[in-house]
């Protein structure tokens, strides 16, 4: 019993982390139609930057926010200087972002070498709570809480503010939105930057239990991809639901059927692709 509930908390916290990673991926893919294969690199680079700051003795939250801010800059540069020129050319975007992810992976290997780094959990969030005779690590609970809070914040931003409506107008009909005076290109850059920052934030948040190592990017990207296909591109609620489903399948799959862990992860995605290609909560493209 205790094992199962701990597994559940671990699943939910992995789900929270996956949401932070895939929310941006989903918005970038669903709204801007950019298949951003560097999203895992944003996660890994953020995690490495955070780990370096932590090694220098900075506060955990400062490290997480600084890594996110760095990714706003890097993401913004990539979008403005490179992706912008490839608007509408999905194959070119795939090749560019894939290529950049290799470049970033090599640069990380040069800077941080191949040894994994495992930052300590932040002191304020160490330990656990004991209820119902079980022990829940506070850090994991905090990740769940942060993910849900950010999900709410994003939902309000996109669905309930004028800014969010302007972004959606740009998605509906970009040329007409521009004619109405909406600065579509700036808004899309902002969406891309927010996505990159969230990925980096997730990278730092996850580093105490995932650790940071070469190949972390390639481990995370497929998870984001599955989440978004499962939940529906562009749907934040879909990303949230998909993240928790994948978090559960990942943990329970590895605990119960370690040999089939990947089958269990990818099977739901295949089913969704066959039965409901727009994803569980995705809108049908009109």
């Amino acid at each position: 019993m205790a094992v199962w509930s701990l597994l559940a908390v671990n699943s939910l916290s992995l789900g929270g982390l996956l949401f932070l990673l895939s929310a941006g991926f989903s918005l970038i893919f669903g709204l801007m139609r950019i298949p951003n294969l560097m999203h895992g690199s944003f996660f890994m680079l953020g995690a490495y930057l955070g780990a370096s700051l932590l090694q220098r003795g900075y506060n955990f939250w400062f490290a997480a926010l600084a890594a996110s801010a760095a990714m706003v800059v890097i993401g913004g540069l990539v979008e403005r200087l490179l992706l912008r020129r490839l608007a509408g050319q999905e194959l070119a975007q795939v090749l560019l972002t894939l290529g950049l992810s290799f470049v970033i992976a090599d640069l990380c290997l040069m800077i941080w070498t191949g040894d994994p780094i495992q930052p300590a959990t932040p002191a304020q969030l160490g330990g656990g709570v004991r209820t119902l005779g079980m022990f829940f690590p506070i850090y994991r609970l905090a990740i769940i809480g942060i993910a849900v809070a950010i999900a709410l914040g994003l939902w309000v931003l996109i669905d309930w503010t004028r800014l969010g409506a302007m972004i959606r107008a740009g998605v509906d009909d970009a040329p007409m939105a521009r004619v109405m005076g909406i600065q579509v290109s700036r808004l899309f850059t902002a969406v891309f930057c927010i996505g990159a920052a969230l990925a980096a934030f997730a990278g730092v948040m996850g580093s105490p239990f995932l650790s940071v190592y070469p190949g972390l990017d390639a481990d995370m990207l497929p998870l984001a991809l599955i989440v978004v296909i499962l939940g529906g591109a562009g749907s934040l609620l879909g990303a949230l639901v998909g993240s928790f489903i994948i978090g559960l399948l990942y943990n329970f799959g590895q605990a119960m059927f370690p040999d089939l862990a990947y089958v269990i992860l990818f099977l739901p995605m295949v089913l969704v692709l066959i039965l409901r290609p727009q994803g569980l909560l995705g809108r049908v493209q009109t």
């Binding site: 004028r162 409506a165 302007m166 959606r168 107008a169 998605v171 509906d172 939105a177 909406i182």
Partner: peptide, 11 residues
């Protein structure tokens, strides 16, 4: 996909 009010507000 925007509501009537949103269509007006964004412009």
């Amino acid at each position: 996909s925007l509501t009537v009010r949103e269509n007006l507000a964004v412009a």
